[in-house]
Design a protein around this nucleic acid. Structure first.
Lengths: 345, 345
DNA sequence: CTGTTAGCGCGTTCAA
DNA sequence: TTGAACGCGCTAACAG
C-alpha cells in the first residue's frame, strides 16, 4: 500500500531520514555511494513524498487555484489549456473550481449578488487548501472589483478584470482595427458594424478600434452603419435587415461575434443577397460553428491559450516577488475563410 | 496575514487547541458557552484550518484527481462540469490534470506509447498529492487497459474504459436504435448509416443498434446503405455522394457524428437535393455548430454532464467502501431540429 | 564534507 | 475539557 514513508526508505537504506530528504531534494551534498543506495531503495519501493507533509513544512503547495466562472462556456477550456501548458513547465498544479455560473444564474452577470456567494465560497475553500495563488477566468469580460477578498493571496484575472489586480486581456481595439483594415484591403469602404451589448467593455473598445480605422483609412462615415446589438443571433438578423434594406447598404458588415454573424447571414439569405459576392461578413470569436456554416465565416480568433499562459506566467512572477511587467496585450488573429470577397469595383 | 493557526484561536478563546478542533468538526460535545465563544473568535479572526495539516492527520484529502486527455476536446468540459456538480455536493475538490493529448500527439490515440509517459507522470503526481481517488476522462472512447498503474488508488474511467476498473459510458446501442426509431416514426424505411472508424467501440455498438432497429421495425435491409466513414467531414461527403447517386438512394441518413453530417449536407447541396424535404439527416454529438448550420441538424445529444456526475458518484461510493452498482447506462437524447422531415408518402 | 539527532509545521484524537 | 502524542517530511544544529 502507499503507506511508504521517508522512514521506511531510511531504514532500508540504513541511513537517517535527513539523508533521504537531502538526496531527494538535492539540498546538500551526499556522498555518491550513499546517494545511489538511497535512490535505489526509493526506486524499488516506488516512494513518493507525501505532499501534505511537504506543504505543511514548506509553507507552499506548488498548487494554484483556478476559478472558472463556467468551464462549459466556449472560451474557458482553451484558457485552462494555456494555464496548464505554463503550469506544467513550472511544475505547478491546478486546483480547479467551477462556479457553474451559466447553469446556475444564466447570463445575469450584472447581478453580482446572485453569484458573490459562490465566488466567496470558492476563494475560501482555496484559501483553506493553501493554494499559492489564484487565477480567475471570467465567462464574460467585465469589471469584478470588490467581488471578493483573497486576504492577501495573489490573484490574476483573465477574460475579466478588477481595478486593483493584475489581469490579462486581449486587445479589443487592435482586433476590430485589424478587421476593418482587412476589409479595406479587399476594397471595401462602406463598412457597417454590429456591436455587442453597448454597456460591455469589449463592445466599447472594438467600437473604438472601428472609429480609429475609419479615420486612418479615411472611410466614409455613416452613423446609420453603426448598430447596437446584444450578442444574440436575433439582433444580428434584425440589424442586418435594417442595414441591407436601407438606402445606403454597406458592402461589408463586421459583427462583434460569430453568433450575430450567423444572424446576419440569415438576413442576407432571406433578402436574396449572396455572401460573400454581394456582402462580406467578418465575425468575432472563431467559434467552432463558424467553420461549418456555409459559407464558412471569416472571423477574429481570440488568443485564449496565450491568455491562460500569460496569466499563469504573471502569477508565477508575483509569487516570486518579481514585478509583473504589463507587456503587450495578446492580440487576436484574423482567420480567413469564405465570408469575405474582394470588392469587384 | 493568513498565518492564523488553531493555536491563535485557542489562546484568544482561552481554551485548548483540542477544544477548538472539536468545535470545528463537531466531533465531540462541547459546552454551549465554550462553543459559542470559540465560534465567535473563529469568525472574528476569519480562521480557516490548514488543509495540509488536516490531510496529513486524516489521511484523506477530500480531493480527487481528474485526468482529462484534453480539456479543449468538445465532450470534456461538460463532463468536468458534471464531476464538479457532484463533487460540490460531496464537498470534494478537484485537482485537474490536462494531458493536452490533442495538442501534443493529435488523434493518434492508437499509439499508446506516445502518451503513456504523460499519463504515468500525471498519475504519479496525483499520487504524491495524496488524492483520494481519480477520474480519467478520455477524449475518445476506447480500451485503456494497462495504460498505467494507480497503485491501488481507486479510479473511475469515463468516455473510455478498461477491463478492470469501473467506467461510466453512455448507451451507444440505444442511441442509434432510438435515432432509427424516430426516422421510422417519420415514415422512413430506406435508411442509410455512415459509421465512424470501424475499429472504434462506438461505431460497432451503434451499428448494433442499427441492425436491431432494422429487425425490430422490419425495415428493408440493403448492405449498400451501410457505409464506413472515419468521423471526418470528408468521409461523410464522399459516402453520402455514393449513397445518393446509387440506384436505390435512401430517404434518410444517420451519420455517426455531426461533423460527417455536415459532409452529408454538402454532398446533398451539390447534388441539388433539398434537406430535409428530399433527404433527412440525423447526426450524433449535438456539437455547437449543429444548431447554427442551415438547416440545423437533428442530432443525438450525449449525456456528458450525467456521465461526469455518475463517475464522481461511483468514485465516492468506492471511497466509502461500498459496492458500485453498475446501474443503467446514461442515455442519449434526440434533439429535434430541422434536418428531418416526415416522409410525404 | 557527510551523516545524525531532534524539533517544527498544524490540526486531530486518545488517555486522563 | 485538556495535555500530549502523532502524521510525514524538512532543516537547523551538531558530531565525526
Amino acid at each position: 500500500m502507499s503507506t511508504i514513508s521517508i522512514k521506511d526508505i531510511a531504514a532500508k537504506a540504513q541511513v537517517s531520514t535527513a539523508t533521504v530528504s537531502y538526496v531527494i531534494n538535492g539540498t546538500r551534498n551526499v556522498s555518491r555511494k550513499t546517494r545511489e543506495r538511497v535512490e535505489q531503495v526509493i526506486e524499488e519501493m516506488n516512494y513518493k513524498p507525501n505532499n501534505a507533509a511537504q506543504s505543511l513544512k514548506r509553507r507552499r503547495t506548488n498548487t494554484i487555484g483556478v476559478i472558472a466562472e463556467d468551464v462549459t462556456v466556449f472560451n474557458v477550456p482553451e484558457i485552462i489549456d494555456g494555464i496548464n501548458d505554463c503550469a506544467d513547465r513550472l511544475d505547478m498544479h491546478i486546483l480547479l473550481t467551477n462556479l457553474r455560473l451559466d447553469k446556475r444564474i444564466g447570463r445575469q452577470f450584472d447581478q453580482v449578488d446572485a453569484y458573490r456567494k459562490y465566488a466567496e465560497d470558492a476563494v475560501s475553500e482555496l484559501l483553506g487548501k493553501q493554494v499559492d495563488g489564484m487565477i480567475y477566468i471570467g465567462a464574460h469580460p467585465r469589471d469584478l472589483t470588490g467581488l471578493f477578498d483573497t486576504e492577501g493571496k495573489p490573484i490574476v484575472y483573465t477574460y475579466c478584470y478588477t481595478q486593483n489586480d493584475v489581469s490579462i486581456q486581449y486587445d479589443d481595439e487592435q482586433a476590430s482595427f485589424e478587421a476593418i483594415s482587412y476589409l479595406t484591403n479587399k476594397g471595401h469602404s462602406r463598412i457597417a458594424i454590429i456591436s455587442g451589448a453597448v454597456d460591455s467593455m469589449p463592445s466599447r473598445l472594438r467600437l473604438g478600434g472601428f472609429y480609429k480605422a475609419i479615420t486612418a483609412f479615411e472611410l466614409p462615415f455613416n452613423p446609420q452603419w453603426i448598430k447596437m446589438g446584444d450578442w444574440e443571433a436575433e439582433s444580428g438578423y434584425r440589424l442586418a435587415k435594417e442595414l441591407l434594406e436601407s438606402p445606403e447598404p454597406p458592402t461589408a458588415i463586421l459583427a462583434m461575434n460569430d453568433v450575430m454573424a450567423v444572424g446576419v447571414m440569415r438576413a442576407a439569405k432571406e433578402l436574396g443577397i449572396q455572401i460573400p459576392d454581394q456582402l462580406s461578413i467578418i465575425g468575432f470569436d472563431n467559434r467552432e460553428f463558424s467553420e461549418y456554416v456555409s459559407p464558412s465565416i471569416t472571423t477574429m480568433d481570440l488568443p485564449l491559450h496565450e491568455m491562460g499562459y500569460k496569466a499563469m506566467e504573471a502569477l508565477s512572477h508575483i509569487l516570486q516577488g518579481e514585478q509583473v511587467e504589463t507587456g503587450e496585450k495578446p492580440v487576436c488573429k484574423l482567420i480567413e475563410r469564405d465570408s469575405v470577397a474582394e470588392l469587384a469595383n
